[in-house]
Design a protein around this nucleic acid. Structure first.
Lengths: 217, 217
DNA sequence: TTCGGAACAGAACATATGTGCCGGAACTGA
DNA sequence: TCAGTTCCGGCACATATGTTCTGTTCCGAA
């Protein structure tokens, strides 16, 4: 969508637009005409209506007529609200400890922190959870200490998917690309220069599919 | 905040809550009492009002009395909306090409794609931009082909910050931790096992501070 | 200057919308 | 069975709120 030019608006219209953003941010619902009137020091409701019509013509907002507070602000303007999902940060992931799966309701309730992610970051999946990487044991997956990995609970996976795997014999959690190869499985590090691990299928336990990895600085 | 128990609600109240979520997701503004009434097949507005009062008592929603459509749904329930910022995806970042800085208004307008990030992911910074990593030249920064790095434009930086640096003599872009050391600078790879680069201060050009790195799968 | 449109003021109007009241059904505990 | 509570239905009412009408002011074009 072509982003409308903010500069082309009159001072009053820019003020209304800013007021809309702050009001919605504050209340979670849009203001009425009279809210805008008092909030922007405008003398008449008709002036507000007039300018809202202009803003609608120019594609900044959408209104549903006859419906109160039915102002929806469009465009990529800062402060727009998108659907986000709270992702529980369930704990740490490290080489030596199994990850807490399956994350049941009580675990999620007790999560001390949650991370807000947009829906495209979770790929629309609803039951994902987050773990903070502890230590440098996953550098072969190009995952650093302090990174956050977003996982989707699963016991099985398709070839080539990035999964968290528990190696029973080795007593170790690792992140690898998964490939079935007859009796055994191949666990391929993301780092192409490193060699894969081969092990028997019953030595491993898939604990989750990696949806995203995030590294905050 | 203790998340209220969804199960404790009557079927009607659960229906109302779900209707609220979908209505807000669809319209960007909350429904009126009568919208809920028809949307949930409830016979009377007073019943809706009654159940909304219960929902408010139990902490699922907040209402502003006397104000139409002033229903704000609380809690980490899926479908909540948070403030997000659109981050322009300006292009690729690769070893051999300088990154497009400074990103001026026209560049940003012309950005073919934008990524929605939550405000905590951008650290509240407003002028960040995103680049998709092309190639494996930054594995020493634990950044993979296809990763997305979020940058904040800057020409200078403090010691220890992760920055995108243009090496003039080498004709190369790289991501390193930056340290002033007298006449020269030390560029430290994130991967602790790798050796730093030392070069003179006037051979480098800081192009941006790395805010976040995201790896979608 | 005159004309016309854009923007504004003020008020009246029509409807949208939350709320209160009364009564009844369904259930509960004594 | 009876009183009490919870929940529902229906309706009227007050007000919150969008819309419209009339007139005014400002400003640039002809």
């Amino acid at each position: 969508m072509a982003d409308p030019q903010f500069d082309e608006l009159s001072a009053k219209q820019q003020g209304i637009l800013r007021f809309l953003e702050t009001f919605i941010a504050e209340h979670d619902y849009p203001p009425s005409i009279r809210d805008i009137q008092s909030g922007c020091d405008i003398s008449s409701t008709s002036v507000v209506d007039y300018n809202l019509k202009r803003l609608e013509e120019k594609g900044f907002i959408r209104r549903d007529r006859e419906v109160s507070r039915a102002i929806e602000l469009l465009g990529g303007s800062a402060g727009s609200r998108r659907r986000t999902v709270p992702v529980p940060l369930l704990g740490k992931i490290a080489a030596g400890i199994p990850i807490p799966t399956p994350p049941d309701a009580s675990t999620i309730e007790a999560a001390p922190d949650t991370i807000e992610l947009t829906e495209d970051q979770t790929g629309g999946r609803s039951n994902v959870f987050a773990l903070r990487v502890d230590g440098h044991s996953m550098v072969d997956a190009l995952i650093n200490d302090g990174d956050i990995v977003i996982l989707e609970p699963t016991q099985s996976c398709d070839d080539g998917e990035m999964v968290a795997v528990w190696l029973k014999a080795e007593n170790e959690t690792t992140l690898k690309k998964f490939f079935h190869e007859g009796e055994r499985v191949r666990l391929q590090p993301m780092n192409a220069t490193m060699d894969p691990i081969y092990t028997s299928a019953d030595n491993i336990e898939v604990q989750g599919r990696v949806v995203t990895a995030i590294r905050p600085f």
